[in-house]
Amino acid sequence: MTLYRPDSLDSALSLLGKGGMTVLAGGTDVYPGLRDGAPPAHLLDISGIAGLRGIARAGGQWRIGAATTWTDVIRADLPPLFDGLKLAAREVGSVQIQNSGTVAGNLCNASPAADGVPVLMALDALVEVQGPGGSRQVPLTDFIAGPRAVALDPGELVTAVLIPDGPGQGAFLKLGARRYLVISIAMVGAVIATRSGRIDRARVAVGSCGPVARRLTGVETALTGAAPGDVARLVAAADLPELAPIDDVRATATYRNDAARTLIARAILMAMEAPHVA
């Protein structure tokens, strides 16, 4: 039972190359996943790697290092584009989980109900991966290959989440059966850029309504040019073929389809309001 705690990316990649490693950051998914069992024999802790934690902007792109926690996101000075991400950060589990859990870990865990995924999809996030073959960038929509499945090859490590800068304001809504510490029934992330009070570009993604979170390209197109007063009607009329919810202990599929539509309209309107995150 060894915990490797490299302080550089090179040594982390070198350790990872040996195989048999479970990557650990905040531990908020790794340990619950043990279900009271023994920890894996080899854990690779990336939380102490120099340069892997923090949020910075460079060359038209925002970079969220792989060891960046949700609390780091909440505390970061970020433009309204990230308002949805900040709201999502506050909805992750609890303060305890936000203090430990990382944005990148939420993506790698690839839960259908991952709080961070819809809003990052709406932000057109890319996942930066480094491994034996060097560095590559994968769109988040491709990175999450299915429930609990991600497009990572052996020896590869997520090193950052990259978000293109641009106009727009974000919003996020999570629906659950209680206030804190709740797995969502449905959630919506939206990023809306407006021009003269009308939607210039809408980016909307839904989570917990299918095996993976999905961008809603049809409704995004339909919303172009819409005023706030049009949103409810356009969303009500949309097809939403991306929704493929199931019945589970949290809600019925029928309800998820119905509630997701309400959340979509509300999240879009919320993203068009005056800035709301302090």
């Binding site: 915990l3 705690r5 650990l24 905040g26 531990g27 908020t28 790794v30 340990y31 619950p32 920890p39 854990l43 802790d45 939380s47 609390t71 589990g93 609890s94 303060v95 305890q96 989980i97 203090n99 430990s100 510490l181």
Partner: peptide, 25 residues
């Protein structure tokens, strides 16, 4: 599993669930 918070400790001043924290961390 980080679901109840009873094990909360301060780690360098920040509350975390000790049950999902590796001792080595």
């Amino acid at each position: 599993a980080g679901d109840c918070g009873a094990c909360t400790v301060l780690l360098d001043g920040a509350p975390v669930c000790a049950c999902v924290t590796a001792a080595g961390q």
